[in-house]
Structures are given as structure tokens and as C-alpha cells.
Amino acid sequence: MVQRILAAGDIESLDQSAVPRIRTPERASIFMARATRLRQLADRGNPIAGYLRLMAGLADAQQAIMRGFKARAPSAESIATAQQHSMPLIPALSGVRDPAWRDVLISLLDKIEAAAPLTPTLEQLIEKLRSLDAATLDAQADAIFAQRFAEVDPASAPFIVAALQVVWTDLAADIDPREIPYLETPGLCPICGSHPVASTVRLGGAYDNYRFLQCGLCATEWHMVRSKCSNCDSTKGIAYHALGTPDADTQTKEAESKRALLKAESCDECHTYRKIGYQNKDYDFDPFADDLASLTLDLLMGEEGYRRASPHPWLWPEQVDEEERSA
């Protein structure tokens, strides 16, 4: 039996209760799976393999901390207000966050130091992070959430984000999907209001053949029809781009695109793109890890005149430039 791929209009015409809308993160495995995938991608000769292995160690540390961590839950009143006004349940941009995130950061640094010998550069960075006071750390978190790039220290940001991810992922894992409201801005995470990092066309069960965006902060996934821009919500000028053989003929390029595990979905209305992966090509695909490991596709999209809709939480713009120069 050949399964038909539903077009955007077909999906939107369905009873929405029949389409699983939300996938909350699995507390026991979310960071472990990410670490495993990062190492897989590093072992395939990736040009930033060293960085991917470092980030795999960071994900290992996140998972270890999650086992004994419990974030301060939001009040019933704040959740009710968010539901009433179609707002994210636990908005990252509110400036109200569990102060325990700073303790999580120190624990992450402890585990990274204990895991393996550090380079002098990483030793200096960890020492610097340990020396920052609460006000400075919170100011960095505010700048990261607001994407005020000029205020973000790109070297420190992945570690600060990792600590914040533990807090918000812990909260998201406990939320009943039925309590999560529809947002007026569908391209943002309905739990924390953060940007998606990439999307997955899932394989199997109730999620089969549906596209889900994954939040870069709390790892919540939410359904969004394909052929629709996740940045501006437009259905016009959507195109898909994949890496292929340089100077290949049109037929070869089309064949390579069909086989591609990862593509960039571009929009000519807002001139941005986000990546999309297909579990039927590789079941281990992880939107967070695979996006981080595919800088070559980012280079291609830059050459074609598109910009990322939002940065990868573990690779800020200045770091991208540095890695591109060393690749």
C-alpha cells in the first residue's frame, strides 16, 4: 500500500483533533538521544567534529542533571492566564525564571571538567563562566532569549543555553498537552514562546508523515503543515534545497534532493529558511543535532540569498563565522 502525502490544504481541512498537535519531551531520554546523534554525526567526518563531540558531552551532562532536578513549576493562575489569552504557558521572554538555572550551569561545568581533559581555551571559558555574578548571567539569558546578538557572548552562550534548556525541558515534560493553548503566532513554541530550531517529518504511529517543529529551548514539538513558512506563516514561494553534486545536471540534482535526509525549507516572502529532516531516511534524525552539524547547508543557503530564521542555540552567528573559516 502506497501512503499518500497530504498537501497543506488537505491537512488543514481535517478534523484537527485527529492530528496530534503536541509532542512533549521525554525526560529520561531527550538529551541522551541528542548526545548519541551528535557523536554519530561527528564520526562521519564532519568538518566541525571536535565541536560536535564537545556538545555531545554537554548533552550528556544535561541528561545526568535532569535525573535529579526539579524546576519550580508555574502557578495555576499564570497557566490559566496564558490559556485565556493564547499565550505561551511558561514564556522565556517574561524575565521570570527559576534562579536554580544558575546552579544548573555550575553543575554542567563541573561535569564537563570531570569528563575529559580540557583545552586551555575551554579551561579559560569555564573559569570565566564561574566568575560571573547572578546579574551578569541573567543579563546574558535575557539577551539570548531576545536575540540581541550584540549583547550575547557567543563562546559562553551554548553553556548558558544548556542550563536554561534543563529548566524549561523539565517543565515542559510535566505539562499535559491538552492544557497547551493555540498561539496567535503559530511559529513559536506554545510552551515557552521560543523559536523552533528545525523540523522533522516523523515516521510511525499517530505522528506518521506529519511535520513537527522542535523548540530550541524546551524541546517541545508542535505540528505545522508542510509547505508553510515556519517564520512568517506564508504558503507562497516555499522551496526546498539540498546539498548535491556540484555542476550536476537537473535530473541528477532532482534525484539527490529526493534522497536527501536534510533539506532547507526557504520562503521567498521573508527570505528566511529552516531545516527539515525526514525520519524515513534515517530514524535517528534529531532536529537539534542535525541542524548543528549541517553548516555546509547553511553556507549554500547564504549563497542563495537566504538567512536563518533564527540561530542555532548552541552556535551563535559569530561562532558560525569562525567555524566556516576553519572548515
Rank of each mutant, 00 (worst) to 15 (best):
I175Y: 01
S75Y: 08
D103L: 14
G305L: 07
T220P: 00
T36A: 13
T169Q: 06
K281V: 15
A33G: 08
G204I: 03
R130N: 08
R274S: 14
G204N: 10
S227R: 15
K258I: 08
Q214C: 09
P317H: 03
A82H: 02
A198V: 01
L295Y: 06
D10T: 11
I90A: 07
D233H: 14
A141C: 10
Y51L: 14
P190V: 05
P186I: 01
Q63C: 08
D208S: 08
P246I: 04
M1E: 08
L261S: 10
G205V: 07
L213I: 02
T121L: 12
W101T: 01
Q214E: 14
L93C: 11
K263G: 01
P311W: 00
A135R: 15
G68E: 05
F145H: 10
D153Q: 06
C267S: 05
L295M: 12
L315H: 03
E324H: 12
I191T: 09
Y182F: 13
A64L: 14
A134P: 01
A143K: 08
Y306A: 00
D103C: 04
A135G: 06
K263H: 09
D103S: 11
L299E: 06
L315W: 04
A289M: 02
S86A: 10
A293G: 06
M1C: 07
G277N: 04
W314E: 07
Y240M: 04
Y273G: 02
L105N: 01
L295W: 09
R211N: 03
I22N: 02
E123M: 15
V320F: 15
V19Y: 07
Q140R: 07
P313N: 03
L122N: 06
A139F: 11
V104I: 13
A289T: 00
I48K: 02
A134T: 08
R130V: 08
L89P: 00
H195Q: 11
D153S: 04
A100V: 04
E127M: 09
A242V: 03
D291N: 11
A28P: 07
G68I: 07
A155S: 09
C229V: 03
P158V: 04
I22D: 02
D10S: 13
A198L: 02
R72C: 07
E179D: 15
A76G: 05
E323R: 14
